[in-house]
Design a protein around this nucleic acid. Structure first.
Length: 525
DNA sequence: TATTTTCCCC
């Protein structure tokens, strides 16, 4: 009996080793099934190993098509079921690993279900769950869970704090961030002095919620800094429009013997782009070719973006074509770049190529292709792409997509369709949309529609002052019989918005133009 | 033989 148990333990050890070594979910499943088939029972190492292998495999190569990750999900579900069945669900290591596995698959809801049902939890379980909420963009839940942990007297560590700081940064929750910091100090811990990762997380939190000065203060106090600390600083400066400071990071790092990595380059490139510093950007490009080459998709995407924005579509295209592994953002950047430079048809073609290559478009990619259609006057194609967003990809159109469509219809003079879309869509029309439509009316000489729609807007939203500005634009371009102006004047007066109407009514064409500028300042700022 | 770390392009 004892010998049989010892033999089984040896067997489990061997299977565990195979399971741990699995590089993808397929080989993992094979190794796990082999264990079941040979009748070897899983021990308390099996599930932590298997789940970690699965999480890492997913991290290394996420499914190319987000709509069909069926196999990987099945593997995880299978492990979860076996874990519960075999009674290892009560093992805190296994439970933590399961929470993390769901988190790595961006399934925070399932992770939370496991977390809530777990019989035993420790600091790792709590940390994994807090990290899961943060990764899913559920910053409030992450902070709430951390507060709960502290209230229960649950042990937390530097990793937990780093995660919750990240959540505070994400939701610009300065109050919670300060509270976390103060709580640690109350415990006699100064996180900035503790370790680099934690200090960097604190730095990032203050930078996101407080501002540059708070970030500099933390940075100066840090006893040690690594590349990530410098990168956080560079990123913060570039977000706050301090391009000069970003460009100081490079010599700053150099002076302490550190080299910029791909994240540093992203900030530096962004600084060059927003500064419009073409020469500098090209210098950076040349330097990067020598150091890191064309290996990083993100950096190349940023470079493409820079070249597109300074009007050099050719260089952007060259970098794009050199890219071996093109991801969604690279495709999107190129599509938008082409669209903006009047190559609408090429951009649409690129979008189709991307889809054929199995890259699944997201909402930004759709903004790109719709913009491209708009510039190329491809109204019916746009309609097709727009419909496929929800029908094929389950992406709900946002205000930007509706804006593209309305702009597109209006430019093409298909004003009834523009109007129809504005009436059908589930969101409030924006000033830009009314502007697009009114502009379409102007270009296509449809003062009748402009007047009807404008009146409608004024009636539906009397507080929506911008419509009067837009209307005065129209009237400045298309002179209507004075009786119609008078009608409008009366309508506006009833609404209590007579000021712009007064100016409009008493003037001639020249004055309408003046009205437009004055009104624009008053109404839109 | 085990679980959880900071900065990131469209």
């Amino acid at each position: 009996m004892a010998a049989a148990r010892a033999a089984a333990a040896v067997d489990a050890y061997q299977h565990n080793t195979l399971i741990r070594a699995a590089a993808d979910h397929r080989s993992l499943l094979l190794a796990f099934r082999a264990m079941l088939r040979e009748g070897v029972a899983a021990d308390h190492f099996t599930f932590p190993f298997a789940l970690k292998a699965l999480a890492q495999a997913h991290h290394r190569s996420p499914p190319p098509c987000a709509a069909a990750p069926a196999t990987a999900t099945t593997t995880l579900g299978c492990l979860h079921a076996q874990m519960v069945k075999s009674g290892h669900g009560a093992n805190v290591y296994a439970a933590s690993a399961l929470v993390h596995a769901y988190v790595s698959r961006a399934d925070a809801a399932s992770a939370r279900a496991v977390f809530d049902a777990a019989r035993h939890r420790n600091v790792v379980t709590w940390t994994a769950m807090i990290a899961g909420h943060a990764a899913a963009g559920e910053a409030r839940e992450a902070v709430a869970l951390f507060r709960e942990a502290v209230a229960r007297g649950q042990e937390v560590n530097g990793i937990t704090v780093a995660q919750v700081m990240g959540a505070c940064a994400q939701s610009r929750d300065l109050e919670s961030g300060r509270w976390v910091h103060a709580t640690l100090r109350r415990w006699g811990v100064e996180p900035i002095l503790l370790d680099v990762a934690l200090a960097t997380a604190v730095l990032h939190m203050y930078a996101s919620c407080g501002g540059l000065d708070a970030a500099f203060e933390v940075f100066d106090k840090m006893p040690r800094r690594n590349e990530v600390s410098w990168n956080a600083m560079a990123e913060v400066c570039s977000r706050h429009g301090r391009q000069d400071k970003v460009l100081e990071v490079f010599p700053g790092m150099h002076s302490v013997g550190m080299k910029p990595d791909k994240v540093t380059w992203l900030s530096i490139l962004r600084a060059c782009t927003s500064k419009g510093a073409a020469g500098l950007g090209q210098g950076v490009h040349a330097y990067m070719e020598k150091t890191i080459g064309h290996r990083h998709v993100a950096v190349c995407t940023s470079l493409m973006d820079m070249y597109s924005k300074i009007g050099n579509a050719r260089s952007a295209l060259q970098i794009f074509q050199c890219l071996k592994r093109k991801d969604l953002m690279a495709w999107t950047s190129m599509i938008i770049g082409l669209a903006k430079h009047g190559h609408g048809k090429d951009a649409v073609q690129l979008f189709n190529q991307m889809q054929h290559g199995g890259v699944v478009p997201d909402h930004v990619a759709f903004v790109g292709v719709l913009t491209a259609c708009s510039h190329a006057g491809m109204v019916d194609e746009a309609r097709k792409y727009f419909d496929s967003m929800w029908n094929h990809y389950g992406i709900r159109p946002t205000i930007k997509h509706y804006g593209c469509m309305i702009d597109l219809f209006s430019r093409a003079g298909r004003l009834a369709e523009a109007e129809g879309m504005m009436q059908m869509m589930p969101i409030q029309p924006s000033v830009t949309m009314w502007g697009s439509m009114m502009n379409g009316c102007k270009v296509h000489g449809r003062a009748d529609i402009a007047e009807r729609v404008g009146r409608q807007v004024a009636e539906l939203n009397p507080q929506f002052g911008a419509i009067y500005v837009i209307m005065s634009n129209i009237y400045a371009e298309i002179v209507l019989p004075s009786v119609q102006l008078l009608t409008l004047y009366v309508a506006w007066k009833e609404r209590g918005t007579v000021e712009p109407a007064n100016e409009l009514y008493s003037g001639n064409g020249e004055q309408y133009r003046n009205t437009r500028y004055r009104s624009t300042k008053r109404e839109l700022v």
